[in-house]
Design a protein around this nucleic acid. Sequence first.
DNA 1: TATTGTTTGACTTTCTTTGACCTTTCGCAA
DNA 2: TTGCGAAAGGTCAAAGAAAGTCAAACAATA
Lengths: 151, 151
Amino acid sequence: MASISDEIEQFILSVLSDDESVKLSRNDLAHYFSVAPSQINYVLATRFNFDKGYIIESKRGGGGCITLVRISDNKEDILPELVQELDNIDVLTFNRASNFTDRLVRDEVITKEEGDIIKSALSDKALNFPAHVGKMRKNIFKEIVIGLMRR
Amino acid sequence: MASISDEIEQFILSVLSDDESVKLSRNDLAHYFSVAPSQINYVLATRFNFDKGYIIESKRGGGGCITLVRISDNKEDILPELVQELDNIDVLTFNRASNFTDRLVRDEVITKEEGDIIKSALSDKALNFPAHVGKMRKNIFKEIVIGLMRR
DNA sequence: TATTGTTTGACTTTCTTTGACCTTTCGCAA
DNA sequence: TTGCGAAAGGTCAAAGAAAGTCAAACAATA
């Protein structure tokens, strides 16, 4: 017995088709399936999350919408591995972040210039604030990596 | 599903084209797009503000109009000016950081890809930690800009 | 029965759109 | 020359239009 969430999942998959991304209207979807709008969030959170290979972006307000992006798995699987690596650690030193970045440059996932930007963002100087430096740097770096995966 | 403000933005960009400035009639624009005249102000304030690299001048009364000027500083001056701007503020919202970044991309100081990395690093998601978000984002961004100056 | 997964709704946040009222400028008439 | 009215544009707050969050209620399953 398929739940309505399963149906919504199938529907979204069908409109996604072979495309790399789709724009969805949360309200329209909810209305179409006669469910609460927040159920769309539930479906996205459970069926189209990062672990399942998707990135969700959205904009609120008038003209707002949800963009669902399928992560291409063949391109660079260094990046998903890196995210997993980051998920497995609690804090990240600048040194380690720097090593990761160098590897991305060496493997031509990013340019040297882009690597430099990342190192700037993660430098001790950039993060000189009074708490949990390691955790937050990890956070930032993870976000940067996720951003790169969209290329 | 672009909002009408997005359409107006695109229209203005198209009439601006490669020119350094363009004269606009608020009333005509509003009438052309069937919106309230003040919506033109909204588009200018959100899409063509100083942070994004534009200056708005206007004259009221009969024959009055709005002049939109694309700031064209020397490329070498953009980054130092930005650092100074950052020194003058205490906190930096993501929105403002995003505007600054867009300008750097527009004026070809950085590539779009590099801009995306910066936005990732400065996103609320990346900085979701429990204290002084604004201050620290400013810090990070300043470091990124200083890093870019070394190129 | 305990746990896991689904559905709903109240409340929040963000961005857009509108309208009422204000200010500046110009041309014309007294 | 002054004053008035029309013709711009400006400001600001309220309403509207999305999407997000979170916890409680409900359902299914081990």
